[in-house]
């Protein structure tokens, strides 16, 4: 496998390019974000990492067209985004599933609202369930699933319509370490297969290094991008990143940026 994007593609999805140009966001007097500039290539996996409250979620909502920036613009494939983006799948830290729909029917909400062909989407949903280890969960309601399973269902919901953009805000934050490692790998395989553009937000250095083509490190108040780290390493990436010196070097680099920013206050 290589990391350049020419793997065999079963269901080819051309990712879209996303650009944030001079984006800022103020909440009242409080300047929370920016200005920041991000340029994502089609099919690129970009991670944003930064301390709590630095503006990562705000950045993602602006990129999705769900929150208007105070200044600056978002462009998708060169066009200015002035309404909620729809060629997209979104995963939040909480699964945000509808409690009154079964796992499968939560995923099929995409089909109903987008008016897509039922048969085709259901087949794809069932394939995704299999790929994500959700066999047998189709007819269960969210409260009958474990936290990890719920999050997998919400990932399936974000992918079932083959969007060219995937936005994920700390999607594995609430999961245990074992599940996180597994689900990270599952996501990487799905991405290798489909090659949508991914904007992935995390607190976890391991996830950032384990998943991304590029890591953007953010600083706090106002949130700005202070470093950009390219991770040119083979895919799929292994489970125990610590054993590989190249990964450890990237991880160390992010740690030292955080130290310099004063994120850690060790004595």
């Amino acid at each position: 496998m290589d990391g350049t994007g020419t793997t065999t593609q079963a269901t080819a999805v051309a990712g879209a390019s996303i650009r944030l140009e001079g984006v800022t966001k103020s909440f009242g007097e409080n300047m929370a974000l920016g200005p920041i500039d991000v340029a994502m290539e089609p099919g690129e996996f970009v991670t944003v990492i930064g301390p709590s409250g630095c503006g990562k979620s705000t950045t993602m909502l602006i990129a999705a067209g769900l929150l208007a920036p105070t200044a600056g613009v978002v462009k998708v494939d060169g066009r200015v985004l002035d309404r909620p983006m729809t060629d997209v799948g979104i995963v939040f830290q909480d699964h945000l599933l509808l409690e009154f729909r079964t796992a499968l029917s939560n995923v099929l909400l995409q089909q109903q609202i987008r008016h897509l062909p039922r048969q085709q989407i259901e087949t794809r949903a069932r394939d995704l369930f299999a790929q994500l280890g959700l066999n047998g969960a189709e007819k269960r309601y969210p409260r009958q699933l474990s936290g990890g399973m719920r999050q997998r269902v919400s990932i399936a919901r974000a992918l079932v319509h083959n969007p060219s953009i995937l936005l994920m805000d700390e999607p594995f934050g609430a999961l245990d370490a074992i599940t996180r490692t597994q689900i990270r790998h599952d996501l990487e395989l799905l991405w290798l297969e489909r090659r949508m553009s991914v904007l992935f937000i995390t607190h976890s250095i391991e996830e950032a290094v384990g998943l991304s083509d590029r890591v953007l490190v953010m600083s706090q108040s106002p949130g700005r991008i202070v470093e950009e780290i390219r991770i040119d390493l083979p895919r799929p990436r292994p489970a125990h990143l610590g054993e590989y010196p190249q990964f450890a070097a990237h991880a160390d680099r992010i740690y030292s940026i955080f130290e310099k920013l004063g994120v850690y206050k060790f004595k």
Binding site: A64, L66, T86, V88, L96
Partner: peptide, 13 residues
């Protein structure tokens, strides 16, 4: 939960 409407808006509901 108002955030569910982020999801439905992104579906174009």
């Amino acid at each position: 939960d108002k955030r569910i409407f982020y999801i439905t808006q992104s579906m174009g509901a």
